[in-house]
C-alpha cells in the first residue's frame, strides 16, 4: 500500500502519533510531526512511497516545535534523529526543507555498508548514469530535467553503491531546487509536481520536486553503472562534452563521496573497478535541450 491510498486524516494521525513509516529506496523511515502544514505538504509529495507494514525501520526522525528565549513569538522547530537534535532550530515554515536535509544527514552519518557518492544517479536502458558534482553545479536541476524525459531517478544527491556487487541502489527522494533553478524548471517542465517555495533558508529559496511515480515504484531495481558525467552549468556557455581521463575521474569521484575514507581499502577497490567499467566525461551546458540531446546520444550507444 502506498501513502496516497490512505486518507489524509489517517496520514496525519500516523504522523502525529506513532509515526508514518515509509520505504525510501533501501531504507525505511519513521517520521513524526504534529505540524498540519508539514503534513499537508508531505501528503502530496510523499504520496507514492510505500508504507512499511511489517519490516523494521532504520531511521526515526521527528520535527517538533521549540520556543526560543530570544525569539519567543516566532515559531521555530527542531529536527530529531532518535531523540537527538542534529542541527540548530529553524523557522517552522522551513520544516519540509529541514526534514529532507535531516534525513540526508542521518543516512550520511549512519550508513557505511554502502559507498555514498555525493552524486545524482539516473538510469537509462538498464544502466546507471552517474552525475557527481559539487553543490551549485546544477546537478539537481539537470537530474530533474532528465527524470522527466525518460530517465529513471535513483537519486539527485546520494549515489548508493554496494561496493561488493558493484551495483547502484535507487533512493528516490524529493529533489530540492534552489533559487534560479526553480523558475528554469517551472518553465521547462510545467508537468513537474513541485512543493511550496521555502524562502530564506541557508541556501536561499528552495522548492522540492516530487520524484516521478515510476521511479519510486521501481526503487528496488538496481543497476550497474556505464557512464560518469561531471556536469557544470555555465550561463550562456556553448555545450561541451569532453572525455575525462580515468585518473582525474577517480579523484573527482572519490573526493565527492561522504564515506570514502571510512570504507578505506574497500572504497579504493570499488572506485577503481567502477572507473574502469565506465566511460567518463565532463559536461558544460547552459540549455536543457542541448544537454539532454548530448546525454541521449551518449547513452544510446551501449
Amino acid at each position: 500500500m502506498i501513502v496516497g491510498q490512505i486518507p489524509f486524516s489517517e496520514f496525519f494521525s500516523l504522523l502525529s502519533n506513532q509515526g508514518l513509516r515509509a520505504k525510501m529506496g533501501p531504507f525505511n523511515m519513521q517520521i513524526r510531526t504534529a505540524s498540519s502544514t508539514l503534513a499537508e505538504h508531505l501528503y502530496s509529495l510523499y504520496g507514492n512511497y510505500e508504507l512499511v507494514e511489517r519490516d523494521l525501520v532504520e531511521f526515526h526522525v521527528q520535527i517538533s516545535p521549540v520556543r526560543l528565549i530570544k525569539k519567543p513569538f516566532s515559531p521555530h522547530a527542531l529536527f530529531f534523529l532518535d531523540g537527538r537534535s542534529l542541527f540548530p532550530p529553524f523557522p517552522a515554515e522551513q520544516a519540509l526543507a529541514a526534514l529532507e536535509w535531516g534525513i540526508n544527514l542521518a543516512v550520511a552519518a549512519r550508513i557505511n555498508h554502502l559507498l555514498l557518492f555525493h552524486s545524482a544517479i539516473v538510469e537509462r536502458k538498464g544502466y546507471a548514469v552517474i552525475l557527481p558534482a559539487s553543490p551549485g553545479s546544477g546537478k539537481t536541476t539537470l537530474c530533474t530535467a532528465l527524470v522527466h524525459r525518460g530517465y529513471r531517478l535513483f537519486s539527485d544527491e546520494f549515489g548508493l553503491m554496494d561496493p561488493g556487487r558493484e551495483i547502484f541502489l535507487p533512493i528516490p527522494r524529493l529533489m530540492p531546487l534552489k533559487n534560479e533553478s526553480i523558475r528554469a524548471i517551472r518553465n521547462y517542465l510545467p508537468e513537474a509536481v513541485l512543493g511550496p517555495e521555502i524562502r530564506n533558508t541557508h541556501k536561499g529559496t528552495i522548492t522540492h520536486v516530487r520524484p516521478p511515480t515510476e521511479s519510486i515504484a521501481r526503487s528496488d531495481e538496481t543497476a550497474k553503472a556505464k557512464w560518469i558525467i561531471f556536469p557544470k552549468w555555465v550561463s550562456d556557455a556553448p555545450l561541451r562534452l569532453d572525455p575525462l581521463p580515468d585518473s582525474e575521474a577517480f579523484l573527482l569521484l572519490a573526493s565527492n563521496s561522504f564515506n570514502y575514507e571510512v570504507l578505506g581499502d574497500t572504497s579504493f577497490q570499488a572506485v577503481t573497478r567502477l572507473i574502469r567499467s565506465c566511460r567518463c566525461y565532463k559536461l558544460i551546458y547552459s540549455e536543457f535541450d542541448a544537454a539532454l540531446t548530448a546525454i541521449d546520444a551518449l547513452t544510446d550507444d551501449i
Binding site: P26, F27, N28, D55, L56, E58, R110, I111, N112, H113, E261, V262, L263, G264, T266
Partner: peptide
C-alpha cells in the same frame, strides 16, 4: 533481518575506521 545486519555492518565499519 537484512536491515539489522546492514546497520550492524555499517557501525562495525565505522568502529574499525575510528580504531585505525
Amino acid at each position: 533481518p537484512l536491515r539489522a545486519a546492514n546497520l550492524l555492518q555499517s557501525s562495525l565499519i565505522q568502529v574499525k575506521r575510528l580504531q585505525q
